[in-house]
Simulated assay, not measured.
Amino acid sequence: MRVAIEDLTVTLAGRAVLSGVRLIAAEGEIAGLVGPNGSGKSTLLRTVYRHLRPHAGRVLLAGRDVRSMTTAETARHVAALPQERGSDFEFTVREVVAMGRAPYKRAFAGEDAADREIVAAALDQVGLGEHAGRSFAALSGGERQRVLLARAFAQQPDVLVLDEPTNHLDVQHQVELLALLRAQRSTTLISLHDLNAAASLCDRLHVLHEGAVVASGTPREVLTPELLAKVFGVRAAVVEHPLTGDPLIAFDHHTPASAGGGPAWAP
């Protein structure tokens, strides 16, 4: 399912957090959002899964405005993993993942065999199949993250919306999660702080700065030393990854970009 964001403006507390944003995630494509803190990434994602109502503009799923859909209909198409995640659920791991089946159930309807199979498969996907009976509240931050991702998978959406899903994960589980997303090939909108992870995972990148999209394209087209200096304020070289051939950003941790006289970003 194709996602298109058209002229999106979001105003919070009288301030335009996003202004005139246009971007797409093609069907089956992983589209990444990158940018400094406060650039509007999370706000944009919240409009896609209808946590926020835009001041102007539209979010289209296969050409249809999400605001014209019912909440249940949206939930059958879009599964979200936001940054603000509950940690005090008094449920087992399996019960949390089973919540992903709610958009397909009538009120008070119980699970059927298909639901149980889907939930079990989602837990296996994130490597927690043997932990179904554990208390969610007793899990580590990384384990909770994987459970909530399994809940999104159990929802069987057309579109995944993931806000910093690698937070709290150790390196092994970060690598496994990114490989899992590649294998899923669902249309995905994902925000990432790790630019090298974004370069490896994403088919397309959109760079946000001060509420506007300032660059879009493939990781190789977007992640240039000039953009990294202007938007992120860092000096870096972009080389080829010796194992994968993806762009690899080598940051200069000794000299700030400002020491080289780099200009501030002006869209």
Rank of each mutant, 00 (worst) to 15 (best):
V207Q: 07
R235A: 14
L181S: 06
V147R: 05
A98F: 05
V239L: 12
L205P: 12
A150M: 13
V239P: 01
V34H: 02
V21F: 01
R22W: 14
F89I: 00
L128T: 01
E164Q: 07
D115R: 06
V234Y: 05
A264Y: 05
E240N: 15
S140L: 09
H241G: 12
L18F: 08
S216R: 11
P219W: 07
A98R: 09
R64T: 04
A25I: 01
Q125H: 11
H55K: 14
A237F: 04
R94G: 09
V238I: 03
R134Q: 14
H173R: 07
G28K: 09
H131T: 05
L228A: 06
V3S: 04
A109Q: 14
D163A: 01
A183D: 09
H131E: 06
R185W: 07
E226W: 15
Q172V: 14
G38A: 13
P157E: 00
A25Q: 00
A114C: 03
D203K: 12
A56P: 04
E176D: 14
H51N: 00
V48C: 04
T187R: 00
G28P: 10
Q174W: 09
L8A: 06
F251V: 15
A113W: 15
I118S: 03
G38D: 13
G110R: 05
A183K: 11
A212G: 10
I190H: 03
K41R: 09
G262F: 13
L18P: 07
L148P: 13
G63N: 03
Y49F: 12
A150P: 10
E210Q: 15
